[in-house]
Structure formats: structure tokens, C-alpha cells
Design a protein around this nucleic acid. Structure first.
Length: 279
DNA sequence: AGCTACTCCTGGTAGC
DNA sequence: TGCTACCAGGAGTAGC
């Protein structure tokens, strides 16, 4: 499912097709994609506006509009964005289409309908609760070490919390924890400084490598705006590899459930914390 | 504060 | 072949 590397890929690939373009018409096939906004209101706010920029913040795509406001998109599990010629058929899962002044069209497509494309007047305020960007300058080893100390939560739920750190999802948390040799149930406050340094390093390298490969595709859902699958799934060490040998030590990867999320660990590389709960 | 459970959704898959 | 049941999960919310 789209996490930071997938969303970054989408933003990079749609940006050159959108910036400078004006919206000449909007078609909404599923109202809830717009959040709480009525279709007529959305159309009034978007039609006639011009795309000023396309940026990623956490797992959101922020498309600033002139003269005001922004479209804030979230792909959730199965959302896709495309910019295609006007004759292109987005298929039966099309949710929103914005016709552009160059004859092309922006499409928001979503099988499971969890994705969102919302108009907001003030994107800074709408996204104010998010934590730091893992690839940004504020996410330093020192920040992570100190932030972990201040929490009594377990590592995995904490790293998935977008108000703590913004952009990681289930896949890249599992991959980062494995590479840092940390167990997902480890209490954050008990992570040593050297382990925090490893976690900081591995989060950044996992995300950077995944962006280089345009994200991960392991089912039919995530595709880039050009229709291509990502390439990072070939690098997975643990995610989706339950029962398969660890690529480091050959111990079979185990799957557990942490916070209702499928969680993948190597029991040897990532020793369980003392006094960990038994299932 | 931090946990669990539930909601929203539907294609894919396992089991019969 | 065709049915049913269940699974995946990002984020929001409710309740303990």
C-alpha cells in the first residue's frame, strides 16, 4: 500500500503534467472521496483554478491551487493518480476526473474507496498534526533518540503513528526494524542510543532505496502514474516473507499481529524484548 | 497515555 | 463451477 516512497513517486511523476495547468471541468463519481465536501462545492472551488505546485508531505500529495487553497490527496490502500490524454479510459474504479486546459485529464482512481482528494483552504493547518519527515533535516539521530525516550509505547505502533513520524507505513516499518535488528514490541523508551542510531540510519536508507526503485508493488494495486510497478519489493527482507528463510541468518521469518497489523520479524535477528507478551 | 476494537471497502484466495 | 467466509490495511473514532 502506498507509503512515503510510493507517494513521493506519484508526486514526482504527476507534477510536470499538472503545474501551470488550469482545471476546466470536474467530474466526481464517488462523493466520499471528497471527504465532507459536497460535489457542487468542490466543483466551484476547483474549476477555474490553476495548479501552482505538487508536493508530498508524509503520505499526502499537496497540490496548491491559484488563486487559493489546495487539493490534498491520500491514496490510502489502493488509490492511484494518473494524468492522461482526454480519451483515456480510467476504468470502473474511477472516482474523480479533472479536465485540464491542455486537453488532458487528471484521474483519481481507487478500488477500495478509502482514498481521499479534498479541497482545503489552508493545507498547512490541515496537515499541522503530522510529525517530522523521515528524510527531512529535522529527523536527526538526536531527535529520534530523545523522542523515543519520551514514549512508553512499543516501537511499531509508535513508528506507524503519523503524528510521531510522518510517512512510514506497515511495510517500511517492518523493513526498517529488521535492518536495525529491533523487535516491533520493544518499548520505545528502552531503545539504547546505539540502537536508535541504527534505526535512524535504516529508516532513511530503506526509504531512499525504495524511492530510487519507485516504491514497492507486490499485488495488483500500486502502480506509478505511468502504469509501472515499483521495484523495491524484491528487496524485502521480512515483509510478506512469513515462513521463508531470513536473508541474513536463514531462520524462518515469523508473522505476528501488532496493533491489528500483520507484522514480520526474524526471531533471531530481532530478539523479542524481555517480558514480552505471549500471544 | 496507550491500548483494543471497530469502521470504511472490495479483489483475491482458501475451503468446501 | 460456484458458493461462502475471510483477509489485507491507513486513518479516524470510541471506549476502557
Amino acid at each position: 500500500m502506498p507509503e512515503l516512497p510510493e507517494v513521493e513517486t506519484v508526486a514526482r511523476l504527476i507534477r510536470p503534467h499538472l503545474v501551470g495547468r488550469r482545471v476546466v471541468a470536474a467530474h466526481v463519481a464517488w462523493r466520499r472521496t471528497l471527504g465532507s465536501c459536497a460535489i457542487a462545492t468542490f466543483e466551484r472551488q476547483v474549476v477555474g483554478a490553476r495548479f501552482a505546485s505538487v508536493e508530498r508531505r508524509a503520505k499526502y500529495i499537496v497540490m496548491r491551487l491559484e488563486p487559493e487553497g489546495a487539493l490534498v490527496g491520500h491514496l490510502r490502500m489502493t488509490g492511484r493518480m494518473h494524468v492522461e490524454d482526454g480519451t483515456w479510459d480510467p476504468g470502473k474504479f474511477a472516482k474523480v476526473r479533472l479536465d485540464l486546459d491542455d486537453g488532458r485529464a487528471f484521474h483519481f482512481i481507487d478500488v477500495r474507496k478509502f482514498g481521499r482528494l479534498e479541497f482545503v483552504r489552508d493545507p498547512e493547518r490541515a496537515l499541522a498534526e503530522l510529525g517530522p519527515e523521515p528524510l527531512g533535516e529535522h529527523f536527526t539521530f538526536e531527535w529520534l533518540r530523545d523522542a523515543l525516550r519520551g514514549h512508553r509505547r512499543r516501537l511499531k505502533p509508535l513508528l506507524l503513528d503519523q503524528t510521531f513520524l510522518a510517512g512510514l507505513g506497515n511495510i517500511y516499518v517492518d523493513e526498517s526494524l529488521h535492518r536495525a535488528r529491533l523487535h516491533p514490541l520493544q518499548l520505545a523508551a528502552r531503545v539504547s542510543a546505539p540502537a536508535a542510531r541504527a534505526l535512524h540510519r535504516e529508516i532513511r536508507s530503506v526509504l531512499s532505496e525504495a524511492i530510487e526503485r519507485e516504491g514497492s508493488s507486490f499485488d495488483s494495486f500500486y502502480r506509478t502514474p505511468e502504469g509501472n510497478p515499483g521495484g523495491y519489493q524484491d528487496q524485502f527482507q521480512v515483509y510478506g516473507r512469513a515462513g521463508l528463510p531470513c536473508r541474513t541468518c536463514a531462520t524462518p521469518i515469523r508473522r505476528l499481529v501488532v496493533g491489528q497489523r500483520g507484522t514480520h520479524v526474524c526471531p533471531r535477528c530481532q530478539p523479542a524484548p524481555r517480558r514480552s507478551r505471549k500471544p
